[in-house]
Every structure is written in C-alpha cells, then in structure tokens.
C-alpha cells in the first residue's frame, strides 16, 4: 500500500472514530430545521426556497471543521514527519482533500434526504440537489483544506477561515442553487467546471502554504 493511501486511511479512521463526521451533519440538519421556523410553515414557499437554503447549510457545514483539518497534525509534528520521509507537500494536501471529502461529502448527501423532507422539497429538485452536492462537495473539501493551510498557525484562524473561504465559495453557491431553475444542466456543468478548477488548484496552493508554515 502506498504512503498516499495510508495517509488517506489514517485521516478517515481518525475522522470517523473521533466523532468528527457527526458534527457537520448535525449542523446541516439543524440549519435545515431552523429554516421553517424563520420563514413560517408555508409549504409552497419552503419548497421554493428549500434547495437554496440547503446549499447555504452545506456551505456553512463545510466551514465548520476547517480550523481542525491541519492544525492538530501540524502541532503534533505529523506534517514534519511526512516531509522528513520525502512526501511532497502537494501530495499530502491532495491526500487530505480526498480524506476530508470522504468524511464529509457522503454523510452530507445522506443528511440531505431528511433535510429535503423537512423543507417539502419535491423529487425532481431533490435529484438536482443531490447531483449538485455530489459535484460540489469535493470543491468544498478542496476549498476547506486550502483555507486551512493558508490560516495554519495564525491566531484566530477559525474566524479568518470563514472570511477567506466564504467569498471563494460564492460560485459554488450560485451554480449549485442555480441548478434548480429550468432544466439546470447549464448550472450543473458550470458547477462541475468550478469544482475541477478548485480541485486542480487547491493541492498546489495548500502545499505552498504548508511549506511556508514550516519556516
């Protein structure tokens, strides 16, 4: 087994055994539950805005674990040990993105099912939402890790992470929620393009940030 897979498996194991998988999902469901309280129990209105609301919830849930993605490994010297073993910072960042997505994307997509029921979202919209999340959550994972690397070692990293990440996630929100209008294929394709771009850039950006943080 390659070192790369070993890192992904280690992170996944720590994620699922440490309870880190539950928190964003519960948060996501909580936001979905709060919406009817804020907007009122009007089924038609909820169904209309529900898809967008769930995208907002997904975005906020993605922000939640950002300050803990790299900081524990940096503090305990794990990242240094990877570097001493000649693993590239980009490779480590890519492994972390994959592990983060596996720990956060699929659970969120499952949680979207009860959340959709809470907001009276119909079947066609739900399919678009799930397709959008399947395409969009890898981008959120990549963006989350990039932000985490950029804010590594800074005081108040958590608050700064939100300020950095949320503006960069605006295209995902626009194209994700945009898929609900019309047949939505155009928006889904643009969402996929945004996702590919972020996935391509994030390992290199995060790798450079990890190198800078070491000095």
């Amino acid at each position: 087994m390659s070192a790369w897979t070993a890192i992904v498996l280690r992170d996944l194991r720590a994620h699922y055994s440490g309870g880190g998988a539950v928190l964003p999902v519960v948060f996501f469901l909580l936001v979905a539950t709060l919406f009817p309280f804020a907007v009122g129990p009007d089924g038609v209105l909820l169904a209309k805005i529900g898809g967008g609301a769930l995208w907002m919830a997904a975005l906020l849930a993605a922000l939640l674990p950002v300050d803990r993605l790299l900081a524990p490994d940096a503090e305990s010297g794990v990242l240094d040990q990877y570097c001493v073993r000649g693993l590239s910072d980009e490779g480590v960042a890519a492994a972390k993105i994959v592990a983060h997505w596996l720990g956060f994307g699929p659970p969120l997509m499952i949680a979207a099912l009860p959340a959709a029921a809470l907001l009276r979202i119909d079947g066609a919209t739900l399919i678009k939402l799930e397709a959008g999340l399947a395409i969009g959550t890898p981008a959120l994972a990549a963006l989350g890790l990039l932000t985490s690397a950029l804010t590594l070692g800074l005081r108040g990293a958590g608050a700064l992470a939100g300020l950095l990440m949320l503006p960069l996630a605006v295209p995902l929100l626009i194209f994700g929620a945009g898929s609900f209008g019309g047949d939505g294929m155009g928006a889904i394709k643009l969402l996929a393009a945004t996702c590919l771009l972020l996935l391509a850039v994030a390992p290199f950006g995060a790798g450079a940030a990890l190198r800078a943080a070491r000095e």
Binding site: A14, S76, G77, Q81, V84, G86
Partner: peptide, 15 residues
C-alpha cells in the same frame, strides 16, 4: 540515506 527525526513533538496519534 533515509532520515528518521525524533523531534520535541511526538507525532503519534493520541487516540
């Protein structure tokens, strides 16, 4: 030759 570093940080998963 490969390098092994024992630094101040343990780099062992606490759990």
């Amino acid at each position: 030759g490969r390098i092994a570093l024992a630094a101040e940080t343990a780099a062992l998963d606490a759990r």
